[in-house]
């Protein structure tokens, strides 16, 4: 487990990490090591270290207390569900949206159960349940855009940043489920036991985000 004198922050590898770096430097917390290769990296502050992990793993590390804090997309938190983490701050980075997309010119067949391909089965289930619609969910791990093209599904639920990938594959956004940005999450036990340092970091993050 992580030590009592160090605050461990789990960072989501990829676009979120890239957009987190300017925020972290503004706080004097630049990673002091090769973030492309190392999984655990010290920071310029002696009492803060980073874990560089897959976005979907961030809530797990933070919930177990292997990391005290984390930076992760709201999409992952919505899919993870539950109330096991504090999520006090919207960092306003890696902005995109969760959307439903379908092949251009798609018309739903009345009376036929909709087939939805997604890597977000929980969000998808909740979204359609809120509209009173029972759908068939096909869980995929990547390249969602392919599914409707080969007849595996009717529509997809996925993250849309620019819409270029959809366009290139002949899909259009037909519905927006909601905006997604990255959030700062905190382990509940860490918030209580390392309160002074974590509170200080939260205030600094908030000031930096507000500009």
């Amino acid at each position: 487990m992580n030590s009592a004198n160090v605050v461990t922050i789990a960072l989501s590898k990829g676009r979120i990490l890239e957009e987190s770096l300017p925020l972290l430097s503004a706080l004097g917390l630049e990673p002091a090591g090769d973030i492309d290769r190392l999984l655990r990296v010290p920071s310029k502050a002696a009492d803060v270290q980073f874990l560089i992990i897959r976005p979907t793993d961030v809530p797990t590390y933070v919930e177990y207390g292997a990391a005290d804090m984390g930076i992760v997309g709201k999409d992952i938190l919505m899919e993870h569900g539950g109330a096991a983490l504090y999520e006090p701050l919207d960092l306003n980075i890696a902005r995109c949206r969760l959307s439903v997309a379908a092949p251009k010119g798609y018309v739903p067949t009345p009376g036929k159960r909709l087939r939805v391909a997604t890597k977000y089965p929980e969000i998808t289930k909740r979204h359609y349940a809120a509209r009173g619609e029972q759908v068939e969910i096909i869980k995929l791990y990547g390249s969602m855009e392919l599914a409707p093209l080969v007849g595996l599904s009717d529509v997809i639920v996925d993250l849309v940043a620019t819409g270029k990938t959809l366009l290139a594959n002949g899909l259009v956004e037909i519905e927006q489920i909601g905006p997604v940005t990255s959030r700062l999450v905190v382990n509940k036990a860490s918030m209580k036991m390392k309160h002074a340092r974590i509170r200080e970091l939260l205030v600094q993050f908030e000031a930096t985000v507000r500009g």
Binding site: M1, E63, G65, K188, A189, S190
Partner: peptide, 20 residues
């Protein structure tokens, strides 16, 4: 997580354990 509490609540934590 408890809806039935009406007054003082408390929990104990220890380092190395991520929950109460």
């Amino acid at each position: 997580g408890a809806r039935y509490h009406t007054g003082l609540t408390f929990a104990a934590f220890a380092p190395g354990h991520g929950r109460e």
